[in-house]
Design a protein around this nucleic acid. Structure first.
Lengths: 246, 246
DNA sequence: CCAGAGCCTTGACCCAGATCAATCCGGACC
DNA sequence: GGTCCGGATTGATCTGGGTCAAGGCTCTGG
């Protein structure tokens, strides 16, 4: 099932043009990247990296969904990042991993061996530049999320998560954002709870409530239709549409 | 009162060697930095930048404390970053500010005009490199904080904040970290509440509780003595000491 | 076809932390 | 000295979301 993806996924002609490093590379740099890259697949539920492990690669997600999580010794866990296709993983210049990375669905990663990648980065300023931009984006997303975790109600949290997933989904789909959105939830209720700082029961109840109130429609447990994104974003308590439309 | 600081603060001989850009610059680069830098002071409570405003500078905090906050239209606010001396402010390559930046105490900033700074960054790879490192640090801190916001109890949140402040304080003080720590809280109870996703009443109650239990001692409302950092960090629920000691 | 496993939903109850309200304390200013 | 004012504390009460528990779907495998 992954085979066709692997076969056609080449850095110079990447189906998703992973934002990480390819977007602005010229042919020569792409050649260098090609020389140090390799693909790996992980099955749903499989760990990609454990927090604290030495990490000898960086890379980006080609397909599937992975998550960054942090766990306290008594088992409380908090998801601190959601990695969708084109997202970058790894910390150039850092020794170990800071968080657990787990494949939430089946995942294909495009990896670069770390040392050569860092060398290339040294010689190629725009790669460092691009990486800085991406890291700033992630920082913004993390800070946005701090507001969700610290100040939003359970209902607002669910609405925020749904609208973020819808938004990211739209950005990957040619055709993009419309007022009516249809997508599949890539997360279990438990994973959503870990992301939102809630329990899975509360997640379930709030999803039922949003359904009852006509904000979303559900087909099965995962397939979501949002008849009116504006209403969903109101529920999320966002003061703007986050650039989602227009 | 700020005068002496201003007088002696020169990039090449900065009292705090602000981590931002100086640490690895050679004489020539320092000269270029000197040419585009200027100092600004802000009084406690004064806004430094409003979210969405155009931002024509980057810089670092020389003295005092500033905070990054996000506010929802109904007034709920969440602090998303605490800027202590040597911390960097600004997003090279970005247009506007993403958050409100407010001076929590009187603040002195060392600013660089943005355009020339970006040009310099273009020509000087190690500055971009340094900035990437710093942004990765901030991202780690933000993600660490997501665990605090999402999964910790009020008491653990307070203990986490106190130990972070103690830790940062120690790193600025020659002599550094010991098991007994003494410092001043740079934040009001309300600001602490905004950082922690709590109300100021809960903050007050939990501080009283930690005092009652002998985890901390208070002199006045702001001066804190931690007789045993290990106990405080236990209360914070951290699985490690965060590299604080040893 | 049934059994079992995973995941999800729903109900009943409880408690940590929010909310509302009454002081208190310490500095600034008259 | 007294008054004012902006924190901070403490108490009383309420409630959103956690906890515990009982099923319900749906897919897999026998």
């Amino acid at each position: 099932m992954n085979a066709p993806v692997l076969a056609q996924t080449r850095c110079g002609d990447c189906p998703i043009r992973h934002r990480a490093v390819c977007a602005r590379c010229n042919a020569e740099e792409l050649g260098e990247l090609d020389a140090i890259k390799y693909y790996r697949t992980y099955e749903a539920g499989q760990p990609i990296i454990w927090s604290g492990d030495a990490m000898n690669f960086v890379g980006s997600v080609v397909s599937g969904i992975a998550s960054l999580t942090q766990t306290m010794e008594d088992g409380r866990t908090q998801m601190v990042g959601l990695l969708l296709p084109s997202d970058f993983v790894g910390r150039p210049g850092r020794e170990g991993a800071a968080y657990d990375v787990v494949a939430t669905t089946d995942v294909v990663m495009c990896c670069f061996r770390k040392k050569p990648f860092e060398d290339l980065m040294e010689r190629t300023p725009h790669i460092a530049h691009r990486l800085l931009e991406m890291t700033l984006d992630e920082l913004d997303a993390a800070r946005e999320w701090m507001l969700v975790l610290g100040r939003k109600t359970a209902r607002e949290k669910i609405a925020s998560l749904l609208s973020i997933i819808a938004r990211r989904d739209a950005s990957l789909t040619p055709g993009g954002a419309t007022n009516r959105m249809v997508f599949d939830l890539p997360l279990t209720r438990e994973a959503m709870a870990d992301y939102l700082g809630l329990t899975l029961e509360t997640v379930s109840r709030q999803i039922s409530a949003l359904k009852r109130d006509g904000i979303i429609e559900l087909e099965g447990k995962r397939h979501v239709t949002v008849p009116d994104m504006r209403r969903l974003m109101e529920e999320a308590g966002d003061d703007s549409d986050g650039g989602f439309l227009g």
